[in-house]
Nucleic acid binder design. Structure first.
Lengths: 343, 343
DNA sequence: CATATGGTTGGGAGCGCTCCCAACAAGGAG
DNA sequence: CTCCTTGTTGGGAGCGCTCCCAACCATATG
């Protein structure tokens, strides 16, 4: 097998120097005749520049890392991360970059992988996602000079770039919607309180209720994002005879819906359900789920754009991008209003 | 901001040469006293070798690529790919390699990303997954000298390394199980016939039926892996009054179950359901799904191991790893047998 | 005619590492 | 005492690229 060819070889075949070929490849100034000749040789030989050599010389790799901690077991059961990856991937493709995935669990061994993330010459920057409160990962990143952006709202958001959705406002809208429907005994199935989304959705919902003069009293339970935890939480809450419930994620809401029907109750007649995410295809549940839709894919795309601008030095002062959410009204809340277009 | 330090700098601080530091880092032979001193400097300075420089010099990147074509929309709704990624990721972590993800749709633009996959100096090898029959991707890979293994069964499997599950035998087992339960009007919800899994599961099921002297006659429909396609297919098949059905994926089976109950029928009393994947948590459906379990995570791990051995030159003649499946008997088939341990 | 200008091109230096070979010291064998 | 071995170390060469500066040519200008 013959040796891979390099810039020099291509140059020799085209009768020009290494530098000229490099200029053709990278879009520098070259006379059109020379350019044509060089391009012909490249097409003919199938020459591709060596990524590692390029990285070494230019001090930039064209790779961005995506860090997902606590990626154990159930992670991918929730479509959230899949969507996020899809958004990030399509954005990296668009700017001709490569996506490196760093998944790890909580084991001490696995955490040591973190250090691989900041290996110089491996990635140009990283997107860190879904950390729990107090996770040392963000602090660790801050201690390096690796550019990074956070998807979500980290503890000390002030000093980091981040992209998030307005969980609080979205949940508040859900509360106001239930109140507007005349529901007076709302319940809450919260998401884990060690995550920013969990906290924000809980607070936003309670805030909205308070505005409407309502309260969950003791009708509150916490799930772990899984469908089954939603079912269990709902089964328990039913004892408090709620007439409505805000479930902090679609996935848990599917479980909650099941608990409702298992208890012989009817949604939306006996109980209104509003959830968060807008990620479960509407037709998958009966009744179709009213949900606060968050633009996951857009968040991913925006995170890539923000990161590239940080890498390029265009952004230097921490910036927070917050996406609005939109309430998609369907049948599960018992609203008589039409589903909005795009819901 | 001071310059990143390199081997030379570390060596200077420890009073040794570049080469010696390199040997300490890579586990060469160094006297214990020197080693101690160098390691102290490394710990103190937080030195990390530059990945790109290392790749260039050693001609190996420590990165493996995972290629998933047709990654549009619904891809991640099926937990299959998530599990596969999890398995692959944990295996790469174990051998201290990094995972690069190449997702793309079918658009002509997107397909061009393929060429990025084989960029020299970017990845050491790639795992190609889930291609449809006749996809030019495999041929394209074969035209390069990039090591690769296929997850699944490619068209001309003879000349490629691949890791697959025994879809055919698994589906056959499902058929025999239904036959053993005394069902005589079996139906089939097949998976897309442009995928090897779709073909193998269909053929295996038909083969098993034939052995048992049964036939699906016209009780056959094809879904697209999605839950809703399963529901639609089942709704249609019900017209043929089947007493049992083999659904080619868990995801579609969930939809099928829904169609059964929407038709006012009872599973398993009126109709036995057996599916394939073993990927949907049993408690998520009523009744719990009897399914042919495939070891997705293990497939991913094995693919990484096989690939590294190809990269290392340890494997040179195409090798096919086929994992067996196991029938997990639960309630949806109407079997009176106990669920097996581990089901 | 000399000089300035601008578009092209070539080649040196260097990115940080690995690989290899030579150098050296310290013993043990002859 | 010399020779060989073994263990340890240093440094040259080179991986394939980018970046920069100098050289060159042609044309425009004084």
């Amino acid at each position: 097998m013959e040796r891979r060819l390099n810039l020099e070889d291509v140059g020799r075949r085209a009768g020009v120097s290494r530098s000229t070929v490099s200029r053709v490849v990278n879009g520098g100034h070259v006379s059109s005749e020379t350019k044509r000749r060089v391009e012909a040789v490249i097409a003919e030989t199938g020459y591709r520049p060596h990524a590692a050599a390029r990285s070494l010389a230019s001090n930039s790799t064209g790779v961005i890392g995506l860090v997902i901690p606590s990626a154990a077991g159930t992670l991918f059961d929730d479509p959230y991360f899949g969507r996020l990856i899809l958004g990030i991937s399509s954005a990296t493709n668009e700017v001709d970059m490569t996506l490196a995935l760093f998944l790890f669990g909580d084991g001490p061994d696995e955490r040591s992988i973190i250090s691989r993330v900041v290996t110089p010459g491996l990635v140009d920057g990283v997107i860190v996602t879904a950390t729990t409160r107090g996770d040392p990962l963000i602090d660790h990143m801050q201690g390096t000079n690796m550019p990074f952006v956070v998807v979500g709202r980290p503890d000390n958001a002030v000093s980091t770039f981040c992209v998030d959705v307005d969980n609080r406002a979205g949940a508040r809208t859900a509360a106001l919607h239930l109140a507007a429907l005349g529901r007076s005994r709302p319940a809450l199935i919260a998401a884990p309180s060690n995550t920013s989304a969990g906290i924000d959705r809980r607070n936003g919902f309670l805030e909205g209720l308070a505005e409407a003069g309502l309260s969950v009293e003791d009708r509150i339970a916490e799930g772990d994002w899984s469908q089954d935890s939603g079912r269990i939480a709902m089964a328990r809450l039913l004892g408090g005879q709620p007439d409505s419930v805000f479930v902090s994620s679609d996935r848990m809401a599917v479980g909650a819906l099941r608990a409702v029907s298992e208890a012989g109750l009817n949604c939306p007649r006996d109980i209104s359900v509003v959830s968060f995410d807008g990620i479960v295809p509407p037709d998958l549940t009966t009744p179709r789920l009213t949900s606060v839709v968050q633009p996951v894919t857009e968040v991913g795309e925006r995170a890539v754009r923000l990161l590239t601008s940080v890498i390029g030095g265009a952004s230097t002062t921490p910036e927070h991008v917050v996406f609005p959410t939109e309430l998609a009204v369907r049948e599960s809340c018992g609203s008589t209003a039409q589903a909005r277009p795009g819901a």
